[in-house]
Amino acid sequence: MAVIEISDLRVARGGKLVLNDLSLTVAAGEIYALLGGNGAGKSTTLSTLLGFLKPSAGKVVVAGTDPANDPEATRHKIAYLPENVALYEHLTARENVDYFLALAGEAHSNTDIEAAFDAAGLQSEARSRNLSGFSKGMRQKVAIALAVVRQVPVLLLDEPTSGLDPKATADFNALLSTLKARGTAILMVTHDLLGAADCADRIGFLDAGHIVEEVSRAQGFDVMALHRRYGEAVAV
């Protein structure tokens, strides 16, 4: 059953049609990577799922809610990690999680929060440190811990491995596997074909606002053939 369902979606920005009959689904416990070059519509797709943009046509359902009609209810079901994770540098990792949980109106035990940090792989000593000294990979672990403790059904990722070294990328992919095993539906937008092939169950190639090709892990990812087809729109 699809947790994210997009059907024949059309979205315009500044009078220009950006998403043109876009259709895709993401099931519970599935990682879907949406690849495309600049201007293909990746960011617009995320903004529409989050309820910041309203479609002119088509259907969008996120965990049973319509983001255009009820954006607040939809966002309560989503954890969103932008390319630069938006956390407070003057707060500790634990204080950030406490703050965002309070903002969401959710109460969780200390045991649950510590277990979420454990699942995210953030070391115990780092949890009481201000984020000003954290690397991008460590910031992502804090954000993932927040997603874990909230137990939201949907995770949206924007260029999640940009700027990460190979070790941090491998750690991040392991975190995604943890969330996938919990049944989270994960949609990532990226131009990193190799990174997508490492973790995704399906990859969709976005061009001019719609999917021009979709491949699955079950079929096997021929990375070099895909790169030849899409050239500068993806990176290897």
Score class of each variant (00 low, 15 high):
residue 127 R to P: 08
residue 222 D to L: 00
residue 45 T to E: 00
residue 210 H to D: 05
residue 39 G to P: 10
residue 211 I to L: 10
residue 190 T to R: 01
residue 188 M to Y: 03
residue 119 A to Q: 11
residue 97 V to A: 00
residue 147 A to H: 15
residue 95 E to W: 01
residue 203 I to F: 04
residue 190 T to C: 05
residue 41 G to V: 03
residue 21 D to V: 07
residue 203 I to T: 02
residue 72 E to H: 10
residue 21 D to Y: 07
residue 137 G to I: 14
residue 125 E to N: 03
residue 4 I to K: 08
residue 138 M to K: 03
residue 33 A to S: 13
residue 225 A to R: 02
residue 187 L to P: 13
residue 103 L to K: 05
residue 36 G to E: 00
residue 120 A to V: 12
residue 154 V to E: 06
residue 3 V to D: 03
residue 53 L to F: 15
residue 129 R to A: 13
residue 166 P to E: 00
residue 92 T to G: 13
residue 113 I to W: 01
residue 120 A to Q: 06
residue 165 D to R: 04
residue 16 K to C: 06
residue 58 G to N: 00
residue 158 D to Y: 08
residue 193 L to I: 11
residue 77 K to T: 14
residue 198 D to T: 08
residue 150 R to W: 06
residue 202 R to K: 06
residue 97 V to Q: 02
residue 223 V to D: 07
residue 112 D to A: 05
residue 42 K to A: 04
residue 2 A to V: 04
residue 38 N to D: 01
residue 196 A to D: 07
residue 203 I to R: 00
residue 117 F to R: 02
residue 190 T to P: 13
residue 18 V to Y: 03
residue 145 A to E: 10
residue 90 H to C: 10
residue 87 L to P: 08
residue 140 Q to P: 12
residue 60 V to H: 02
residue 137 G to R: 02
residue 76 H to E: 15
residue 205 F to G: 13
residue 110 N to E: 15
residue 120 A to P: 13
residue 116 A to Y: 15
residue 222 D to V: 04
residue 108 H to I: 02
residue 191 H to E: 12
residue 43 S to P: 08
residue 132 S to T: 13
residue 171 D to E: 14
residue 137 G to C: 12
residue 65 T to R: 04
residue 193 L to T: 11
residue 90 H to D: 15
residue 29 G to W: 02
residue 143 A to L: 10
residue 213 E to H: 03
residue 98 D to V: 12
residue 225 A to V: 05
residue 65 T to V: 14
residue 88 Y to H: 06
residue 6 I to D: 11
residue 10 R to P: 15
residue 180 K to Q: 07
residue 132 S to F: 08
residue 202 R to P: 11
residue 5 E to Q: 09
residue 19 L to P: 15
residue 172 F to V: 07
residue 87 L to G: 08
residue 102 A to W: 10
residue 32 Y to S: 06
residue 148 V to R: 04
residue 17 L to D: 14
residue 156 L to M: 03
residue 35 L to N: 09
residue 130 N to V: 04
residue 199 C to Y: 05
residue 43 S to W: 02
residue 98 D to L: 10
residue 154 V to H: 01
residue 186 I to C: 04
residue 126 A to N: 11
residue 184 T to V: 13
residue 221 F to C: 05
residue 19 L to R: 06
residue 167 K to F: 06
